[in-house]
Every structure is written in C-alpha cells, then in structure tokens.
Nucleic acid binder design. Structure first.
Lengths: 166, 166
DNA sequence: GCTTTACCTAAACATAGGTTGAGGTTTTAG
DNA sequence: CTAAAACCTCAACCTATGTTTAGGTAAAGC
C-alpha cells in the first residue's frame, strides 16, 4: 500500500539522493533504466524518491563490492515479496546468498594460485598438458558451482609436464 | 638476431596457431594490435609466426586466468630483455609477480567477506557509518597495494552501527 | 584450371557499467 | 521578475576483451 501511491512523506530530488548516496545523478538514471530503483515524478516531470531508495542503493553497492553483477542484484532484489526495499532481515538473507558466491570466487582464485605454484616449478606451459590453461581443466566452468574444487591432484600434476610442443 | 630476420625455421600460419593455442583467429589479430604478439608476412601478405608464439600465448592466458589485464600482461612482457618470449625462468619471475597481485585480490575479497559477515548481524547499511561501503573505508583504493589490510577492527565496528539516516 | 578453403583489412557489434554532451524545461534564490 | 542552478531526454562516448561481417586476395586440392 505504501508503495503504490506515495503521498505526504518527504520526497528526495535526484540531486539530494545522489549527494547522500555518493553516486552521480547519471548513475541514478542508469539504475532506473535497469529497474534497480524507481522514482515518481512531480508536476514538472522531475524525479522524486522515497527515502528508502537510499537503503536500496546501499544494498546495490554492497552487492557490487562483493562482485555481484547488476543483473544478478536486480534478480535478487526482484525476488523480495512485493519487490520491497530490503529490510534488515532481507539484507541478511541476500548477503548470505551473495556471500556464498563470493566464497566461490575466493575458492576459485585460491585454486588458480595453487596451480600457478605448481607451474612455476614446472615452467612447461604446455598447451596440451599444463593444468594452467588446459581447456577441460579444473576451472573450466568458472561460473557454475564449486565443481573444480574436487580435484586437487591436478595442481600437483603440474610438477613434471614439460614437453617439446612449444 | 634470431628475432629480426627469421629465415629457415618452420613458420606457422594464423590458422595453425589458432588451432594449437585454442584461440580464435580474430583473437590473434586482436593480440597483435595490442602488441602482445608479433608476426611476419609472407609474399602474399599472410601472417607467419615463429613457434614460440605459442608459449607467449600460453603466458598471456595464464596471466588472464590470474586476473591480470592484457595491458598489464603487455607491460610485464615488455620488461623482458629484448622483449623476448619468456623462458622458463622468465615465466617463474612473471608468475611470482602476478601471484602477488592475485594474493592481493584474494585478500581483498576475504576482507569484504569479513565485513559482510559483520554487516549481516548489523543490518544497518548506513551510508554514513557502515564500513561496507563507506567511501574512505578499508577497501577504498582497491588497486594500489594492501593498504586496506591494516585495519581489521573495522569489520567488528560494523556490529552496532544502525542509524536512522536511511 | 577451377573451386574451395584460408587469409587479408576495416568497421561494426557485443557486454558491463556507467559518463558526457546537446538542447530544452523547471525550480529556486535574490 | 529574472537569472542561475537543477533537472529533463536522448544519443554518443568510454574501457576491456574480443567476435562478426563485408568485401576482396592468396593458396591449396583435385
């Protein structure tokens, strides 16, 4: 009810929101086209925001800091009942969800690091056998889950794989 | 000497390189415009590559997997004496260098994770005080060194920072 | 010798996440 | 009331990392 016909609550102009949220006005326009935030118009066609847009922007920025793309953020926000601005509880759920993705990214990078460790000693960089960039290697499908976590022996396999190919 | 006037070594066409390195032909053209690899031309103006281009591409791909940008890769490759194709030793040095950058990224993400941990319990997301996206927060200058590593107490500060601002 | 395959260049397109500029309107301060 | 500041839309531009397309040439197979 409060969302559809806002009435006497104080409204923020785009410039005020930009200042308080520390983003450019153009960014707010951009977010609006992406469906991340919404605004109402005054009689002169200028944007007016409810104050909770600030919290919404905060969540967006937090998500970005965690390496979540805007489209994913939009999806997650869209799954809130009535697409409401996240409450404290909502934020807890969302951030836990994003945290899992962050954990995956960290784990991915740590596996790459481990592989490189092996490859430094080896030095082969063989297109055919080096786990460092073999097409069907541990990190093949970077985005779908922790699949590549399951074969730590590949990092060790790098130890002696020098070949004459290149 | 071997680099400037290549003579009777076997040369690879762009298609052969693409196949063996598992990249698209267009990617090789693109890398060439970026100065990452080089080629010579035959009498019919077609590209011909020395075999060591494969190792160079391997290093490029390895760097990318570590999250290093092409321009940084180019810089690093350019610092090799005579811009030679990396030897095993060169690769060891470069990968250690890049590994340090990878370590920074991992550490950065782990600090973000820790902060979110604090923010989940807190839920404030205050534009003014929350370490999660405060402009001058721990992670302010993401790209220049491990500056933000030095204040672990900010993550704990997040515990009770709810305010009424938004 | 003819046809198919490979190759050439240049420019446009793609995606993410915005920023900048032009030209015009509204709001606000004095 | 007037001028400046803020706002509006739409389109072009930006970086990074390539891919696609169009129009034309070279090389290789039969």
């Amino acid at each position: 009810m409060s969302d559809s016909t806002p009435r006497d609550e104080p409204r923020l102009s785009v410039g005020q929101v930009a200042k308080r949220a520390d983003v450019a006005v153009s960014t707010l326009h951009f977010y609006e086209t992406k469906g991340l935030i919404r605004s109402w118009r005054n009689t002169g066609n200028q944007r007016r925001y409810k104050k909770d847009v600030l919290r919404r922007i905060a969540v967006i920025k937090a998500g970005q800091k965690m390496g979540i793309s805007l489209s994913e953020i939009q999806e997650t926000l869209g799954q809130l009942p009535q697409s409401r601005t996240p409450t404290k509880e909502d934020w807890a759920n969302m951030s836990r969800f994003w945290q899992a993705q962050l954990d995956e990214k960290i784990a991915y990078m740590m596996r790459v690091r481990e592989m490189v460790d092996g490859c430094i000693g080896c030095g082969c960089l063989s297109m055919k056998s080096c786990p460092m960039y073999n097409p069907d290697d541990i990190v093949a499908k970077e985005s779908n889950g922790a699949v590549w976590l399951e074969q730590p022996e590949q990092a060790r396999a790098a130890k002696n794989c020098y070949d004459k190919e290149n």
